[in-house]
Computed example of a mutant assay.
Amino acid sequence: MARKFFVGGNWKCNGTSEEVKKIVSVLNGGQVPSPDVVEVVVSPPFVFLPEVKNSLRPEFHVAAQNCWVKKGGAYTGEVSAEMLHNLGIPWVILGHSERRAILGETNEFVGEKVVYALSQGLKVIACVGETLEQRESGSTMEVVAAQTKAIAEKIKDWSNVVIAYEPVWAIGTGKVASPAQAQEVHNELRKWLAANVSPEVAASTRIIYGGSVNGANCKELAGQPDIDGFLVGGASLKPEFIDIIKSAEVKKSA
């Protein structure tokens, strides 16, 4: 089953109004494959979501970097899925390792967030990944499977879910999982989905890679059979993000 290449840009806690305008200008002027070949979603900080959504070329979409697990109410500082849907924001990133590590979000909490966001009409980029200590101890798949299981136990329809495998040791460090390392985990994740959810979900769900992806390494990574795209951090703020989007052509030609 063909899976459309997916490139997400996570801007994290970066940007001023002027910087955001420059990034959007680069994206709007970039020559990239057609929407039939690649789906592009960028994720600015909350305060810039409406501005970016309204100024970005129509075939590019936006994602929030998080949302709350319940309907709005007495939750100071949170943003609800209902609010995002009301603004016409189609995507949300959930379970990013920075939130797991800094804010203590558990697998179960992330699973609850995913199912609630889906119930409110959002599409979800669900992040999973192991720390360096966990990789060195040989427990990568145990960790990633547990994170995925917490989501799989709560949802029935996977059509609006993209899994982002982001090894924590590769995020913002300049270290990148080798194409073989990334492919191995993606393949094992797909096998886990086939065994624990269904072969159909395993075949159709996009599993993207995140962790120091840049213009220099994206093509080799994109050539791996089970890597369906990227969730890009720092490089999504730079012109080379266009080159990363173009790596979808590698998958198309394969």
Rank of each mutant, 00 (worst) to 15 (best):
M1L: 10
E220P: 07
A146M: 12
F60H: 14
T148F: 11
V197N: 04
V37F: 13
V201S: 06
I23Q: 08
V37E: 13
L231K: 07
A170V: 01
K53C: 13
G138A: 10
K251E: 14
N187I: 11
E18V: 13
V69C: 14
V124C: 06
K123D: 01
P50D: 11
A194E: 05
S25G: 13
P44V: 02
E51Y: 15
N107K: 03
T131S: 15
Q65M: 12
K246L: 05
K113H: 09
V47S: 02
T173W: 10
Q224N: 10
V185L: 06
S204E: 09
R57S: 03
S137T: 12
H96D: 08
D228L: 12
G88C: 11
H61W: 09
G15N: 09
K156T: 13
R135D: 00
L49H: 00
A145S: 03
P50V: 04
A177I: 14
C67L: 02
G8L: 11
D157E: 08
K4L: 02
V69G: 15
S17T: 15
E18A: 06
L189R: 06
V37L: 12
I89N: 13
S247I: 07
G138Y: 11
H61F: 07
G129A: 06
P90N: 03
L94M: 00
A194Q: 03
A216Q: 14
Y75G: 06
S34E: 11
L49F: 03
G210S: 00
H85P: 10
V79W: 09
P199M: 10
T173D: 02
Q183D: 10
N54D: 13
A152W: 03
L189S: 00
Q65S: 07
G211H: 01
E51R: 08
A81D: 09
G234R: 08
V197C: 01
S139V: 04
E249C: 04
I227Q: 11
K252E: 07
P45I: 05
V128C: 10
I242D: 09
A180P: 02
V168H: 10
V176L: 15
N214E: 03
F46C: 04
I227T: 06
S119K: 15
Y75S: 10
V26Q: 00
